[in-house]
Write a protein that binds this DNA or RNA. Structure first.
Length: 686
DNA sequence: GAGCACTGC
C-alpha cells in the first residue's frame, strides 16, 4: 500500500482490493476542484487591463511618482531591524511592483538568493512579472520571472520571482526552509485565501528556524495588527525584541467621496437601477463610467434589462447615452470583453458586475461605484458537509475595496445602498476562507508537509475545531491517515489507472461543457452533449468526452460538440502531469478496456462516504444523516431514469440541496469496499 | 432547471 500526492488532486490513494489481481484507485479530491460552471479558465488572461494614468511618462519617472517611493528607505531600514514587515497600502500605491525592486537594488538577491512574491491569482503573477521586467528593461524570465502551474518562466539568473501561492507551497515540500529565498513577499494577504493562511502558518515556523529570512506581508487593510502579533513570537514583553512591525503607505491616487442612503432600501436591484439613472442625469458633465456591484448573475441580468429599457428612452432626448453591460464569471468570453472596450464619445457605460470586479478584474475609466452592500460567499456547513453560497452583508474592507474602484485615475464617487449606521455595523473584514471551508484538503496538505498535529498548528486565524476534527475523521475513514493521525502508505497495482487519471483531470477543469443561455444554440448544445452521456453517471461521461476528444484534439471538434477547448486542453496538461507522476513512482498505467465496473468500483472506493439512495418519496437521501437531496440539473442523470444508488462528489445548497458529479453504484459495493464505514444492516434498512 | 471568485511538483 502507498500514498502519493499529486499537485492536482489532493491525494490519490491506491489500495488493493481483495479480489485477485485487481487493484483499485481510491481517490479523494479537494472540495473546490469539483466546482464547475466557471468562466473560461483563461478568459481573464487577456482581460487584465490596468489603467495607467501616467502612460506618457517614462517608466522611471512613473516609478518615482508612486506613493510607495516615499517610504522606500523606511522599508529597507525596517527589514534590517525586523524579520517580518506588515506593509499596509491600498491598491495603486505600487507595492506589488516596487518593493521587490527596492529589495533587489538594496542587495537582497546577493549570493544567488531569490526575492519571491506570491499572488492569489495567475494573471496577477504573470502580469506583474511582465510589468516589472519592462520597468527594469529586461527580458521576462531572466532577472524578473514568474512561475505558475504549467508555466515556468524563470531561469538560474532570476532574482525576482512572482508566483502563485500554490507554487510556493509546493516548493516547501521539496525545500522546507525555502533556502532559495532571502525574502518572501506575500501579496494581497487581506483576501485571506486558504493558501495564504496555510503559508503564513508554515512561514511562522520557517522564520524561527531561519533567522536570516525576511517576510513582507502585504495587505490592503485593517488586519495589520493581528498579523503583526501573529508573527511577533518574541519572548519578553519589551518592544525592543519585536520581530514584526507595521508600515502604512498612503493609499490610492485619488479620493473617493462616499455617499450613504438616509433610509435603508427594500430592493437593492431596483435601487442600483435608480441610482445609476440618477448619476447619469445629474452628472452629465462629468464623464466616466459607472460600476455597480450585485451578488449574482440573476440580479445582474435583471438590473441590466431594467437599465436597458431606460437607456432606450434616454437615447432619444439626452446628449449622453447610457450603455448597460453585465459582467460575471460565467458570461461568455466575448461578452466579458465588452466591458473593457471604450464606449463611443456620446455614451456612458454602466457595468453591473458580481464580485468578479472587486479583485479579479480591473475595469478602466470608472468614476462612480454603486455598492448594494451584499456578496455571495461560499460557506461549508460541517454538520451536514454541505457547500452553499450564502448572501451575506459585505465587510467594511470589501465595501472600501469596491469604493476604491472609482478612484483609480481621478477623484470618484461611491454610492452605498445602505445607511452609514449599517456600514458601521458591518464586520470589519470577511471571515478568512479557512474558517468557512472544508478543511480536509488543507489538513492533508499539512500532513504531507510533516505537520502531524494539525490541531495544535498555529493558524493565523484558528478554524473551528469541529471543522478540523471532521476533516481528520474523513481522512481516517478514507484510510488516508492511521490511528495515530499519520499518513498511511498504501501501494498496489491498478486495473484502471489510466481511466481514473483521465476522470480526475476532467474533474479539475471547470466549464468543460459550453451551455448557451437560450435559443437554438442551447438546444444544439444539449443534443451534442447527449452523445457522451451514459447511464453510469457524470464521471464516466467525462471519461467519454475526453476519450472522444483525444481522437481529434481540434478546436473545431470542440466547437461542434459544445466543449470548452481551453478547458479540455488544460485537462490534458493535468492528465499528462499525473501520468508522469505515476510512471515516476513505478506504477503501471493500465487501461481496463470494456470492464466499466472496475472503474465504477474504483470511484466507489474513493467516494464511499458520499452515498445516497432513492427514497420512496421520490427524492434522494444521504446514507449518513438521512438528508433529502436532489440531482443537480446539470448532471447527465437529471434527464435519465433515477438510479437507486448514487455517489456524489459534492453537495451544493442553492434553491434545493443538490448533488453534483454523480456516479451510479450497486449498494453491495459499499459494504464490500468500505466495511468499516457501512454495515449490511444499515443499508438494508429503509 | 441552475451558476461569488480563485488556485496546484
Amino acid at each position: 500500500m502507498f500514498i502519493f500526492e499529486t499537485s492536482q488532486i489532493v491525494l490519490l490513494k491506491i489500495s488493493s482490493l481483495r479480489q485477485k489481481n485487481v487493484v483499485i484507485f481510491n481517490f479523494y479530491v479537494g472540495d473546490n476542484i469539483w466546482q464547475e460552471d466557471k468562466a473560461d479558465i483563461d478568459a481573464h488572461v487577456s482581460t487584465q487591463f490596468v489603467y495607467n494614468a501616467n502612460n506618457s511618462l517614462s517608466l522611471d519617472v512613473q516609478r518615482k511618482r508612486l506613493p510607495i517611493f516615499k517610504v522606500k528607505n523606511h522599508i529597507l531600514y525596517l527589514l534590517e531591524k525586523y524579520q517580518t514587515l506588515v506593509l499596509v497600502g491600498e491598491t495603486g500605491c505600487g507595492k506589488s511592483t516596487q518593493v521587490p525592486q527596492y529589495l533587489l537594488e538594496a542587495g537582497w538577491s546577493a549570493d544567488g538568493k531569490i526575492i519571491g512574491i506570491t499572488e492569489p491569482r495567475r494573471v496577477a503573477a504573470t502580469s506583474l512579472a511582465s510589468r516589472v521586467a519592462d520597468e527594469r528593461n529586461c527580458i521576462l524570465g531572466a532577472e524578473v520571472g514568474y512561475a505558475i502551474r504549467f508555466d515556468d518562466c524563470n531561469d538560474e539568473t532570476t532574482k525576482i520571482k512572482y508566483m502563485t501561492e500554490g507554487i510556493l507551497l509546493r516548493e516547501m515540500m521539496g525545500d522546507p526552509l525555502l533556502t532559495k529565498y532571502s525574502i518572501i513577499i506575500l501579496d494581497e494577504v487581506h483576501e485571506r485565501t486558504m493558501l495564504t493562511d496555510i503559508i503564513m502558518g508554515l512561514l511562522k515556523k520557517i522564520l524561527k528556524k531561519r533567522r536570516s529570512l525576511r517576510l513582507v506581508v502585504s495587505s490592503a487593510t485593517v488586519d495589520a495588527e493581528e498579523l503583526r502579533d501573529f508573527f511577533n513570537s518574541r519572548k519578553s514583553s519589551s518592544n525592543e525584541d519585536d520581530l514584526a512591525t507595521i508600515l502604512s503607505v498612503e493609499g490610492r491616487l485619488h479620493p473617493v467621496d462616499v455617499h450613504y442612503l438616509a433610509e435603508p432600501c427594500a430592493d437593492y436591484v431596483q435601487a442600483v437601477v435608480d441610482t445609476a439613472l440618477k448619476i447619469h442625469r445629474n452628472e452629465e458633465q462629468q464623464r466616466g463610467d459607472i460600476l455597480a456591484f450585485l451578488t449574482g448573475m440573476d440580479e445582474v441580468d435583471r438590473a441590466v434589462s431594467l437599465l436597458k429599457e431606460h437607456a432606450e428612452r434616454i437615447g432619444i432626448d439626452k446628449q449622453l447615452k447610457l450603455l448597460p453591460l453585465p459582467m460575471y464569471g460565467s458570461l461568455p468570453y466575448k461578452d466579458q470583453l465588452r466591458v473593457f472596450q471604450r464606449a463611443p464619445n456620446d455614451t456612458r457605460k454602466v457595468i453591473v458586475a458580481t464580485n468578479i470586479a472587486e479583485t479579479s478584474i480591473t475595469i478602466p475609466n470608472i468614476t462612480c461605484v454603486i455598492d448594494c452592500g451584499f456578496v455571495k460567499l461560499p460557506w461549508f456547513d460541517v454538520e451536514t458537509q454541505t457547500n452553499s453560497l450564502i448572501v451575506a452583508p459585505v465587510s467594511q474592507a470589501s465595501a472600501d475595496q469596491r469604493a476604491g474602484r472609482a478612484g483609480r485615475h481621478r477623484p470618484g464617487k461611491a454610492y452605498r445602498l445602505y445607511t452609514e449606521e449599517a456600514f458601521a455595523a458591518l464586520p470589519v473584514a470577511t471571515a478568512p476562507e479557512m474558517q468557512r471551508s472544508d478543511l480536509a484538503p488543507a489538513v492533508l496538505q499539512l500532513k504531507a508537509l510533516g505537520i502531524d498535529n494539525v490541531l495544535r498548528f498555529n493558524f493565523p486565524s484558528a478554524p473551528p475545531s469541529k471543522s478540523l476534527l471532521s476533516a481528520l475523521e474523513l481522512l481516517y475513514g478514507l484510510g488516508i491517515i492511521d490511528d495515530d493521525g499519520r499518513l498511511t502508505n498504501p501501494l498496489g497495482n491498478m486495473g484502471c489507472s489510466e481511466e481514473i487519471t483521465t476522470i480526475l483531470a476532467m474533474l479539475q477543469v471547470q466549464n468543460v461543457f459550453i451551455r448557451p443561455a437560450g435559443g437554438q444554440a442551447s438546444i444544439k448544445a444539449r443534443i451534442a452533449h447527449r452523445k457522451f452521456e451514459v447511464a453510469e453517471g457524470d464521471l464516466l461521461t467525462y471519461l467519454n468526452i475526453y476519450t472522444a476528444y483525444e481522437k481529434n484534439k481540434t478546436h473545431s471538434w470542440c466547437q461542434q460538440n459544445f466543449i470548452n477547448f481551453k478547458a479540455i486542453k488544460r485537462a490534458t496538461e493535468i492528465r499528462t502531469q499525473m501520468r508522469k507522476l505515476i510512471k515516476k513512482l513505478g506504477l503501471p498505467l493500465l487501461n481496463c478496456g470494456i470492464n466499466t465496473e472496475l472503474i465504477l468500483r474504483c470511484i466507489a472506493a474513493g467516494l464511499f462516504p458520499y452515498a445516497a439512495y432513492l427514497h420512496y418519496t421520490g427524492v434522494y437521501r444521504t446514507v449518513r444523516g438521512n438528508r433529502d437531496l436532489h440531482i443537480h440539473p446539470n448532471s447527465c442523470l437529471y434527464t435519465l431514469e433515477q438510479p437507486q444508488w448514487v455517489l456524489f462528489g459534492e453537495i451544493q445548497q442553492t434553491t434545493k440541496v443538490y448533488m453534483r458529479e454523480l456516479t451510479v453504484i450497486k449498494p453491495e459495493w459499499l459494504v464490500e469496499l468500505a466495511p468499516h464505514f457501512y454495515r449490511r444492516t444499515a443499508i438494508d434498512n429503509d
